[in-house]
């Protein structure tokens, strides 16, 4: 497969950068995600469609829209996690369905409870993000990367704690560490701030800010820009399953940036399952 736009990022450092859009001055790299004529959904029913979309290395993109507008479906469409009814998706120049090595991709699902019936430590949860198809067994060498990812999200002191004993915001940070631990060059985060208090939102934004200087490509589904606003370079606004606006954040009409606050008359509220707690 193509290694386009990838760099090694085995041990990300938490450098505590102030939020800034300085990385936006860097020239954009190769195409990381390409969608052409894509229609995505469930059971043959289309929930999001995109005529053409390209996301390049180094971009920081907010995927905005009201509840049920198709943001999450589109993000899952990038990864091949929902039905692709039409069109094609390429990640790093490779058709998504044929992409074998996904170690360059980090993903934070939307409605994931970090705590299941069995006790799981933060270490164990994060370590599971190191699995790839090529090397499912070689976990013994991963301690450094696991500890580094946990440090990035500021949970070193809680690394051996049961995830279920953490606050909702801390659980979300643990899941972010799991998304980061693979040494991702492309990070797809679905509502990282869902149910997370302001302090934890700031902590997550800090962690991401530090990583952006390493050339990370970031796509974030958000209801509101919040603490990530200074980092965002491009905004894609979804409305009723199609892209209503796609461009630099400076050119985005203010009313579109706050569509997430609106009640969606068609989709209704998205189910709130999972941690859904205030951290």
């Amino acid at each position: 497969m193509s290694d386009t736009g990838r760099k090694s990022q085995e041990h990300p450092d938490h450098s505590g950068h102030a939020h800034s859009r300085a990385h936006a001055c860097q020239p954009l790299g190769d195409v990381v995600i390409a969608v052409e004529g894509g229609r995505f959904g469930y059971g043959g029913h289309s929930s999001a469609s995109v005529a053409r979309l390209e996301i390049r290395s180094g971009e920081v993109i907010a995927l905005l829209g009201a509840n049920g507008s198709g943001k999450t479906t589109l993000m899952k469409g990038f990864l091949g996690l929902v039905d692709r009814i039409e069109g094609k998706v390429e990640l790093f120049g490779e058709p998504v369905e044929r992409l074998q090595d996904r170690s360059a991709i980090g993903y934070l699902p939307q409605r994931q409870s970090a705590a299941g019936p069995i006790p799981v430590t933060v270490n164990e949860l994060v370590r599971s993000g190191r699995l790839t198809r090529r090397n499912p067994l070689g976990l013994g060498r991963d301690d450094g990367a696991v500890q580094a990812a946990i440090a990035v999200v500021g949970l070193t002191a809680s690394a051996r704690k049961r995830v279920s004993t953490l606050s909702g915001g801390q659980q979300r940070r643990a899941l972010l560490a799991r998304a980061l631990v693979g040494g991702s060059q492309l990070l797809l985060l679905d509502e990282p701030f869902a149910g997370v208090d302001q302090a934890n939102q700031e902590a997550i934004a800090d962690a991401l800010d530090g990583l952006l200087h390493n050339g990370l490509t970031l796509v974030v589904v958000l209801h509101e820009l919040g603490p990530l606003e200074p980092l965002i370079t491009r905004v894609i606004v979804m409305d009723h399953g199609t892209i209503r606006f796609d461009g630099p954040i400076e050119q985005a009409p203010p009313e579109l940036l706050h569509m997430g606050h609106d009640h969606d008359p068609h989709g209704g509220p998205e189910p709130t399952q999972g941690i859904g707690l205030v951290g």
């Binding site: 996690l81 991709i105 994931q112 299941g116 599971s128 993000g129 699995l131 790839t132 499912p136 976990l139």
Partner: peptide, 18 residues
């Protein structure tokens, strides 16, 4: 480790390519 990843979070495991 693979059984754990899939049992703990099936969607995430799919995103990893498992």
């Amino acid at each position: 480790p693979v059984l754990f990843a899939v049992s703990n979070d099936e969607e995430f495991a799919r995103a990893l390519g498992i």
